[in-house]
Lab assay of single mutants.
Amino acid sequence: DAPDEFRDPLMDTLMTDPVRLPSGTIMDRSIILRHLLNSPTDPFNRQTLTESMLEPVPELKEQIQAWMR
């Protein structure tokens, strides 16, 4: 099983494109984008959230890719 820090906190699946929300939570980009289609909010604190506020986490993405090899 993947380490917890590699798993999306909402869907508990392996992240492939991790992004940091303004709240500091790291999620998979595809999952948070799907959530934003229904509700333009951070799913953990209900603060306003837009796609432009998502910050890529390239170092975590590299760690996940290395773990998958």
Rank of each mutant, 00 (worst) to 15 (best):
I32T: 00
H35K: 05
P58Q: 10
E5W: 14
Q63M: 14
T16K: 12
D28F: 11
L21M: 06
T41F: 14
D8A: 03
E55D: 09
D42H: 04
R7V: 07
H35N: 04
I31C: 09
R46Y: 14
S52F: 11
S39W: 09
N45C: 08
L36E: 00
Q65Y: 13
D12T: 09
Q47H: 10
M15F: 01
L10P: 03
M15D: 00
M15Q: 00
I31H: 08
T13D: 05
I64L: 06
N38D: 12
T25F: 15
L10H: 05
A66C: 11
P22C: 05
L37W: 10
E62H: 11
N45L: 07
P43E: 00
E59I: 10
S23T: 07
R29M: 07
L49D: 01
E51K: 11
E62Q: 13
V19E: 01
L36R: 00
M53R: 05
T50Q: 09
L36D: 01
P40T: 10
P22S: 03
D8W: 03
E5I: 13
Q47Y: 09
W67D: 03
T16E: 12
A2N: 05
N38Y: 14
I26F: 04
S30V: 12
V19A: 01
D12Y: 15
S23C: 07
D12S: 12
L54M: 05
N38I: 14
R69T: 12
R34W: 12
P43C: 05
E55T: 13
D1S: 14
D1Y: 14
M15S: 01
D8T: 03
D17P: 01
S23E: 01
T41Y: 13
D28N: 05
L54Q: 01
L54Y: 02
R20I: 07
K61T: 07
D8K: 07
I64P: 01
L37K: 14
L36T: 01
A66E: 15
P9W: 07
Q65A: 13
L33S: 07
T25Q: 12
M11E: 13
L33Q: 08
R34H: 10
R7H: 07
T25D: 05
R46N: 15
T48F: 15
T41M: 09
E51P: 13
P43N: 02
S39H: 10
N45Q: 06
L49M: 08
R34E: 10
T41C: 12
I31K: 03
L36G: 00
R20Y: 04
T50K: 11
T13M: 08
T25R: 15
S39C: 10
N38G: 11
P56D: 14
M15A: 00
R34K: 13
A2V: 15
P43A: 03
L21A: 00
R69L: 13
I32G: 00
T16P: 04
N38H: 14
L49Y: 02
L49S: 00
L60T: 01
F6L: 06
Q65G: 08
D17S: 04
I26A: 01
T25C: 13
E59H: 12
M11S: 14
E51Y: 10
Q63H: 08
G24N: 05
L14S: 03
M53F: 04
P3R: 06
M68Q: 10
T50S: 12
S30M: 13
P3T: 05
